[in-house]
Amino acid sequence: MDRPAHTRLPDLPLHRLDVPLPHLLPFAIGTFDSIGPLSRAAFPHRHTFYEIVHVTGGSGAHVLDLVRRTVEPPQLCVITPGQVHHWADAEELTGNVVLFDEDFLLPHTDDAAALRRLAGRPGHPAGDQAAPIAALLADMATEARDLPPGHHGVLRAYLHILIARATRALGPTDAPADSPAPAHDRAAEAAAAFGRLLCEPGGVSRPVGWYARQLGMSAGHFQTLVRRATGLSPGSLIRRQQTLEAKRLLSGTNMTVRRIANVAGFSDPAYFCRFFRRETGMSPGEFRTWAVRMHHDPRTESIAGHPDGP
């Protein structure tokens, strides 16, 4: 893989979780109104934190990594760190927004993998989990507001239950086929750690051997574990992430193709253009034109319907 010596951060707005005193928790919960206007931002942006949204009313669409889904309450939307999303033509959105960072998941390490599977969709119906989830979110909001003794543990337990109910609402047949199921084994742990490293700034610019060293194993053993857990080689997953990152930047920024190539892990823009066409069937310029048209005209076919979509 061709890679630059240094990778600059992309020009997409990056939102960080800023929880005011006296909480001192990497966690926040509220309505769209109480969290603030950025909770319904209409411009493409990414987070350093996780977001779970339970939409109970309103109209418009949620666009997550170029996949557009009409708002059909009650609906769940999950956004993981590094994903690019925005709300399109949203009006009168109501519901609850839960924000938290990776540290808040430490007691339940499988939850990070579950959230990545849920984030494979821009939104899915809450189904028969809508009422239990609404009640659970009300309890979480009360706990976060009152901060009684032991609230740290209670909020983490509530979050674990919320993720389980969101997964139950998605259903086994709706989960992305290439997402490994949670498992307490070395292969699943290695694949999950690899996935987190890939989503870090500059993650796609690193060779397979770098990830193996970070995880304290040989390159061969790392390859075996990742393929066992995902069915794909680490190189294939890196190429998939490079393509997705390039799509995000082509559709959400005015960065030049040369700079996007650099951020996506290529020092040679010409090679990047050949790579992108091979992976998507379009040149970077053609894809940007298509993405701009899709953003301004919701009748344009979503990337979800494109055979080369993410």
Rank of each mutant, 00 (worst) to 15 (best):
G203C: 07
H15R: 15
W290Q: 10
L162W: 06
K247H: 03
F49R: 03
D178K: 07
L99V: 12
R240Y: 03
R288H: 03
D178N: 12
P107Y: 08
G57K: 09
H54F: 11
P73I: 10
D128E: 15
P44M: 11
G95Q: 07
A41K: 07
L147Q: 09
A169Y: 00
L136W: 07
R145L: 13
L244M: 06
V67L: 15
E286M: 08
M140R: 04
M294K: 08
L118Q: 00
P307Q: 06
L9H: 12
V97P: 04
A187Y: 06
S233K: 10
P310R: 11
L25Y: 06
L12K: 01
L9P: 09
Y211P: 01
P74K: 10
T167H: 00
S179C: 08
S205N: 07
L38R: 12
R145M: 12
Q75K: 05
T109K: 15
T31Y: 07
A126Q: 02
P74V: 12
D128Q: 13
P22E: 08
A157H: 08
V208Y: 04
G220A: 13
T31Q: 07
W87T: 14
L25E: 11
D103N: 15
R228V: 03
I163M: 02
I29F: 02
P13G: 05
I161K: 08
T280V: 02
A191W: 05
I163A: 01
R240F: 06
D33C: 03
A264E: 05
P310F: 10
A135F: 09
H160T: 04
Y158S: 01
D65A: 13
D101E: 14
T7L: 10
R299I: 11
V78D: 07
L25V: 10
A261H: 06
M294R: 13
L159N: 01
V226P: 03
T243K: 10
Q75N: 05
E51C: 10
G285H: 07
I238W: 00
D174E: 15
L115Q: 01
I260H: 01
V53F: 02
P298H: 01
D2S: 14
M217I: 09
A264C: 13
H23G: 09
I260K: 01
N262W: 04
D174Y: 02
H152A: 13
F287C: 01
G120E: 01
A141I: 04
D65Q: 12
T224R: 15
H296G: 11
F222H: 02
H86V: 11
D89A: 15
M282A: 03
R156V: 10
A42N: 13
A164H: 08
G36D: 06
V97W: 02
S179V: 05
L12T: 13
P122W: 01
S205W: 03
M217C: 07
R277P: 00
R121Y: 04
V204D: 05
E51F: 04
